[in-house]
Nucleic acid binder design. Structure first.
Lengths: 148, 148
DNA sequence: TTCACTGCAAATGCTTTGCAGCGCC
DNA sequence: GGCGCTGCAAAGCATTTGCAGTGAA
């Protein structure tokens, strides 16, 4: 029959400890991480994997459809294991950086539907909400950092 | 870090020909363009604006809410003039970069509610949906396995 | 005149790649 | 034993920034 889209391009993939380490780390994480962050995590974990290799493995896994990629606002690529169970978003404080995880099944559905309605396939999405957390809101109201 | 990230509205902005050129060009375009592309367009148009200045103006206009920004799959930032009064989001093709504007009052409300429920104030949010547009989906399904 | 803006080029930060040696199959 | 994989470091890209001259107000 015709070729499937899933098999790799005839390139065999050897099982090295670096690949295993990256694979394990990604499986353990349920959030997006940049290559740099992952590299730091691995080093922190005692694994010896070079940054270049992390990039190569991440790229390879992505080509094989094992990972999802998204670009964070700063041009860094963020990867996440595809089998992620629960997709969640974040509510982040503009002032102190504190973050709250947000689950929103409705938004997931909405995003998927919008993509489908426009004929887009293999959709994914990112949602981020910013604001001032209760503490910072209070501080701002009291202290009045306004200069203008 | 406790510093305020708020843009200085008090800062005056001089009307230079470079800014006018960028402004005019963006107003003429109705598609997303990267800073590099815009710079090339300007040069092609006889305008003398350096790349660095294009970046600076684009950044400045974005801060003032005059432009929309999205990240194409390759890490390049793409800008487009944002004349819409209402807050909208984008559905972007991962492959060809084509973008579709999406209005979603429900999501706006949801984001505001989530922020409020967590005691966050002055909330704002970003939502981006990625996928393969109809054309690219077709190409991928048709033959697009082996392509150099 | 004043000072924000501009151009140039060097600097940054993320990502890729060439090369030589190593380890999986 | 072959050949893909890894590490190191330099290369490559898009974007940012320091500095001094220029032009808008």
């Amino acid at each position: 029959m015709s070729e499937n889209v899933e098999p790799k391009r005839g390139r065999e993939q050897r099982v090295t400890k670096q690949r295993l380490a990256v694979d394990a780390a990604m499986g353990r994480l349920d959030d997006f991480v940049s290559a740099q962050e992952l590299h730091r995590l691995l080093q922190d974990n005692g694994e010896k994997v070079s940054l270049a290799t992390v990039y190569r493995i991440l790229q390879s896994m992505t080509e094989d459809g094992l990972l999802d990629v998204v670009r964070s606002g700063d041009g860094e690529a963020a990867y996440r294991s595809c089998e992620a169970e629960v997709h969640h978003h974040h509510l982040v404080c503009r002032s102190c950086g504190k973050g709250v995880e947000v689950l929103a099944p409705a938004v997931e559905t909405w995003a998927a539907r919008v993509a489908a309605e426009n004929g887009f396939t293999e959709s994914s999405h990112t949602v981020e909400i910013y604001g001032y957390c209760p503490d910072c809101t209070r501080l701002r109201a009291a202290g009045g950092q306004e200069t203008a």
